[in-house]
Amino acid sequence: MEQLTLVDRLSHLSTELTAAERENLKFLLSMAAGGLLSGHAQAVPEQLREVALATAQRSLPRLHGTERPVFDTGVVFLGRGSFFSDEDIAALDGESRRYRERAERFHDHYVASGAPLARELALSTQVNDFLVSQVGPVLPTYKANYLYYDEPGLGIDPHVDKDEFSLNVLTMLEHVPDTRHSELILYPPEQDAIRVHLAPGESLVFFADSVTHQRTRTVAGEAIRLVSFGYRTIGSV
């Protein structure tokens, strides 16, 4: 009989869990991966740390069975997307500026939700058709958030997102000054980290609930504005 790995066992376990229980398991795996990536287990032998990190990272995508297409890095698209026109980007930029005063602090960054234009574009045919062409059928989650990192020390430690952001369309609206310090980093299983530097108007589409990622901390004078749309995949390609 073939011996099951821990990754196989966790994958099988996830099929027997409720959605809430699976979210809890994902949270624990995410915390484990984030802690290892942040260097919180230095007393553990390096080889054991590497095995533990690989197990956590490889398990995360497999918690969802066929709801997630098989992927390599978790990056679906990176660049200037055809789903947003120049007018769309300009309108999102303006709305995000207006909504900054409504943003509330969420851990170590600020979030503004419920903006009408962002929500309208999140439900647009252009975005939906593009995602379907890349990963198969998706469901919009009506989550459209403006994100602000405009004070020193803001950022997000390594983590994965909830199911409602299983597929994240993240678009840069502003990052000043030209000399940047904060960056978005993705940690695909057993691969080199992917450092993402988006120019204004560029988008990253990735499996945010399955690939550990973080935004490193801002420094004095640095300001970042993004818009983030969440979707759920509903089957393999």
Rank of each mutant, 00 (worst) to 15 (best):
L25C: 15
Q191F: 01
S85E: 09
G201M: 08
T171D: 01
R119G: 14
R58G: 01
R68Q: 09
T18I: 04
G79M: 07
K26C: 12
H213F: 11
L78W: 11
Q42L: 08
L173I: 01
P152E: 02
S30C: 07
N24F: 12
F207A: 02
V160Y: 03
R195S: 12
H213K: 08
L147K: 06
L139H: 06
Y99C: 00
E67Q: 13
S124Y: 11
H175N: 01
S59V: 05
N128C: 10
P116A: 08
Q134R: 14
V76R: 06
R225D: 02
L184D: 07
V111M: 06
D129T: 08
D163I: 11
Y187E: 03
G35N: 07
K162S: 15
G39Y: 00
P140S: 14
R102D: 12
R80V: 09
T212V: 15
G230R: 07
A223G: 10
L226C: 06
L123H: 14
F77P: 00
H64D: 15
D157Q: 14
L226N: 09
F130N: 07
S210H: 04
H64Q: 12
A103R: 02
L29S: 04
L147I: 10
V211E: 01
N128P: 01
K162C: 11
V176I: 13
V135R: 06
F165G: 01
L170G: 04
S85L: 10
G39K: 05
P116E: 02
S113Y: 04
H40W: 09
S14L: 06
R102Y: 13
R100V: 03
I224N: 09
E46H: 13
L78Y: 12
H197G: 04
V237Y: 08
S203L: 02
S85I: 09
G65F: 04
S228R: 04
G74R: 04
V227W: 07
P61L: 02
V219N: 00
A144Y: 03
P188Q: 10
E16F: 11
D108I: 02
R68Y: 08
L139A: 15
T216I: 06
S228H: 09
F229P: 10
R217K: 15
L48K: 10
L204M: 10
R98S: 08
I89W: 01
G221E: 07
I194A: 07
N128I: 10
E50H: 11
